[in-house]
Design a protein around this nucleic acid. Structure first.
Length: 185
DNA sequence: TCCGGGATTTAA
DNA sequence: TAAATCCCGGAA
């Protein structure tokens, strides 16, 4: 796990990690191939956030969010999609960043397949098997590597997508004009 | 045990 | 605007 993102990176306030995840590289190792993609759209969810699964305390589904940072929180939604999150904050405090879109480094022209939290999990075959697994270990089939630095000028901020509570919090961060970013609104 | 909603996506 | 589709959590 030498060159993955360090543990310190994840053990910060969720909003800090969310912004810092833009430009980083997500790697998915398959049996005979691997996919590397740049994170281009994220959303922050915190313990005191009514829109967060962990808002109401520990429950089986969101238990991973309360654990140590740097692990994957994967949940199943709408009967057919999975969503990938990166756990943040110190052990014992809930928090996570939803990965909403990726820019594939290899497959040019296939950006649409990574545009949206449900679609990117489908494309990368990410399901509940990954829930609770570390993202700072390059021996795993899913992990994070340092990518490129993103300047504030490249970043756009907006309210989060698809939620019904705390709808006004500007906790969505994405790269302006990136092909993979899920539009809407 | 039952029921409604959900951090989505697609098509009409 | 609505359907697909099912786990989770709160209510009963």
């Amino acid at each position: 796990m030498a060159h993955t993102l360090p543990l310190d990176f994840f053990e910060q306030p969720t909003l800090v990690v969310a912004r810092a995840l833009l430009g980083q590289t997500l790697v998915r190792q398959f049996e005979n191939a691997s996919v590397e993609a740049e994170i281009v759209e994220v959303e922050a969810y915190t313990a005191d956030d009514p829109a967060c699964h962990a808002f109401g305390g520990r429950r089986p589904r969101c238990e991973v969010m309360f654990g140590p940072p740097g692990f994957a929180y994967v949940y199943f939604i709408y009967g057919m999609y999975y969503c990938l999150n990166v756990v943040t904050e110190v052990d014992g405090t809930a928090g996570a960043v939803l990965i909403r879109a990726l820019a594939p480094r290899q497959e040019k022209g296939h950006e649409k397949l990574y545009s949206g939290p449900g679609k990117l999990c489908k494309q990368l075959q990410i399901d509940l098997k990954f829930n609770g697994l570390p993202l700072f270990d390059d021996k795993q089939q899913l992990y994070l590597l340092p990518g490129r630095t993103i300047s504030d000028e490249e970043v756009a901020v907006s309210p989060r997508i698809g939620i019904s509570k705390a709808v006004d919090r500007p906790w969505r961060f994405y790269l302006k004009d990136d092909k993979s970013v899920s539009r809407r609104k």
